[in-house]
């Protein structure tokens, strides 16, 4: 293991994060606050409870997931796309660094940033609504797993993208819709039976639902299923990165 290299990449990425700390932290926190004001306070006061949970508190896990997914993806995809675009990737490619070391450095940094953001959102949420966390260990564990998995997914997108448009298209056209329809703002059994079935095809439903269980102890989907699916997706992404570095696809051509 080239530990010095992992450290160098991680530091480099964290320095980039801290250079743009205002925009990278402030904007998600602001938008989450707006959600809480609109959905939590304004609309939520008319919504009553879902599954015995106050609506304001009910939407916290979903909103957190919303930010976590999009931030993890955009962070990590940008982190590896930028050197490709600027040409500075030559140094990584010519260095004695394995694919796994590159992943640990880049994805580790992106996930760290997402987790910082997640913590900040939890604190912000506390300002607007009182809530308690039923299974804190599961909550933290699942938060870390999602941050890592989706940072890795972002890394994959960054490897694949060869222009800025491609970099944006998956987060914008796939991830955001899936997250919005993933039950961030409602419980699945509020839907008509047919749409309940359709919704279960959306992987984000499992993430949000599993995560919600760690908060409120009730959920549409078992946390074990959610964890299993996330781990599966993580393995898939890892396999892809391994293959890209091995074959040189889009990297060494």
């Amino acid at each position: 293991m080239n530990l010095h290299a992992i450290r160098a990449i991680y530091r480099f990425e964290m320095a980039r994060t801290f250079r743009t700390i205002t925009q990278s932290i402030a904007s998600p926190v602001l938008s989450t606050s707006l959600y809480f004001i609109v959905f939590g306070a304004a609309i939520g006061s008319r919504m009553g409870e879902i599954d015995g949970v106050d609506y304001g508190a009910f939407i916290i896990p979903g909103l957190l997931m919303l930010s976590l997914l999009s931030e993890s993806i955009s962070n990590a995809s940008f982190g590896i796309y930028m050197p490709k675009w600027a040409g500075t990737i030559y140094e990584l490619l010519s260095a004695p660094v394995s694919w796994l070391e590159a992943v640990i450095g880049y994805v580790g940094a992106a996930a760290t940033k997402s987790l910082m953001l997640g913590a900040l959102i939890l604190v912000t949420a506390r300002v607007f609504v009182p809530y308690e966390i039923a299974h804190p260990l599961w909550m933290v564990g699942f938060l870390v797993l999602t941050a890592v998995t989706f940072s890795l997914f972002g890394f994959v997108i960054g490897l694949w993208a060869d222009d800025f448009q491609k970099l944006q298209v998956i987060p914008l056209m796939v991830v955001t819709p899936l997250t919005f329809l993933g039950g961030a703002f409602y419980s699945i059994d509020m839907l008509p039976p047919f749409w309940q079935k359709v919704t279960l095809l959306n992987p984000v439903v499992y993430l949000i639902s599993g995560f919600r269980w760690s908060f409120h102890g009730v959920a549409d989907v078992h946390i074990g299923v959610a964890t299993g699916m996330t781990l599966g997706f993580l393995a898939l992404c890892l396999g892809f990165v391994w293959w890209v570095f091995r074959s040189g696809w889009k990297l060494r051509n």
């Binding site: 010095h4 290299a5 480099f12």
Partner: peptide, 21 residues
């Protein structure tokens, strides 16, 4: 190809680290 926003010192430390030193 340089990292525009990095300092000279930081970029050198990065390179050395990347090569495992």
């Amino acid at each position: 190809h340089t990292d525009a926003f990095e300092t000279v010192m930081a970029t050198l430390k990065f390179s050395r680290g990347l090569f495992g030193k």
